[in-house]
């Protein structure tokens, strides 16, 4: 039946889209949290995701670790790297014009990409199959075990992040610094520490996304962070940059749109769709779906 098979196809693409989108969400969170706290678009963020994928790769293929220890190792290495990058590259420019910091971020990004090529060769690597690839079918709809793992891990991390931001002392400090840095300092909050913590968390989430993508697509390379990094950035803008639930929502929407475009139109247009969304949001609601239409505070 025509309609029935259309509905099936639709549900299938939604499932694919949500699992891909949850990966974008994880990356977008780092963009949005860093922006929220120091008003910087950290263009090196996509490359941290690549780094995470490589750490996951080496941990599983060479050290023979299983999935969860490899995931934790990748998150830890990326968190430390993110903190070091902020300390060395961004902190000295804390009072410099924004454009200087932005250019530095692009520089750091290129350093990671081409440093990565130098270190691990540009050759794509095959990510080992850390999970038995089971396929479940429910009335014509196919779900594989990787998709389930991706969704479960992404969801767990987002719940954990929400808990940290909403319920812990450091989370309150993050929200305070993001709203008014000087007032936060008057509370006795060490702003530098909060910024480091934010970079650490954001980088850890991106690394988790990298490992998840590794097991999903099986293939990783040193430039793999560029496109997902851009799309996650669009996702963050779509949800409202600086707004944490916005990044989660934006990521899922991006994934779903991409899956629908590849499924129903053609996969050649899937990247174009991402940037069409960016243009549309900038035209019609620059503050993002969850953003309030207010002028940026000075």
């Amino acid at each position: 039946m025509e309609l029935n098979s259309f509905a099936q196809q639709l549900v299938q693409q939604l499932i694919n889209g949500v699992s891909l989108g949850s990966i974008y969400s994880l990356i977008a969170l780092g963009y949005t949290m860093v922006y929220g706290i120091i008003r910087l678009i950290n263009f090196a963020h996509g490359d941290i995701y690549m780094l995470g994928a490589y750490v996951g790769f080496f941990c599983t293929s060479i050290l023979g670790l299983s999935f969860f220890p490899a995931l934790l190792a990748a998150m830890a290495v990326a968190a430390v790297t993110g903190i070091v990058i902020e300390r060395l590259a961004y902190r000295p420019l804390r009072h410099a014009p924004k454009i200087a910091v932005l250019i530095t971020a692009i520089g750091v990004s290129l350093l990671l990409e081409y440093g990565g090529i130098l270190a691990v060769t540009p050759q794509p690597r095959t990510f080992p199959a850390v999970f038995p690839a089971r396929i479940y079918t429910f009335g014509g709809i196919v779900v594989n075990s990787q998709q389930i793992v991706i969704l479960a891990v992404a969801l767990a991390l987002m719940v954990l992040l929400t808990y940290i931001v909403q319920r812990t002392k450091i989370g309150r400090a993050m929200r305070a610094v993001s709203y008014d840095t000087d007032a936060a300092r008057l509370m006795g909050i060490n702003v530098d520490q909060v910024i480091s913590f934010t970079f650490g968390i954001g980088s850890g989430l991106a690394a988790a996304a990298g490992v998840l993508v590794g097991i999903y697509y099986n293939s990783i390379d040193p430039l793999m962070g560029i496109m997902p990094g851009l799309k996650a950035f669009v996702a963050a803008v779509l949800g409202g940059i600086g707004i944490i639930p916005g990044a989660m929502l934006g990521g899922v929407i991006m994934g779903v749109v991409e899956a629908l475009v590849s499924g129903f139109i053609s996969s050649t247009f899937r990247d174009a769709a991402a940037f069409a969304i960016l243009i549309a949001i900038l035209l019609f609601k620059p503050s993002g779906l969850l953003g309030k239409n207010i002028r940026e505070k000075v």
Binding site: R172, A173, R175, Y179, A183, M187, G188, I189
Partner: peptide, 16 residues
């Protein structure tokens, strides 16, 4: 901190 609750503002006052 306008985006935080009254209670959270007070808790931040006790941050140290």
């Amino acid at each position: 901190f306008a985006n935080l609750t009254v209670l959270e503002n007070l808790e931040l006052g006790a941050y140290i």
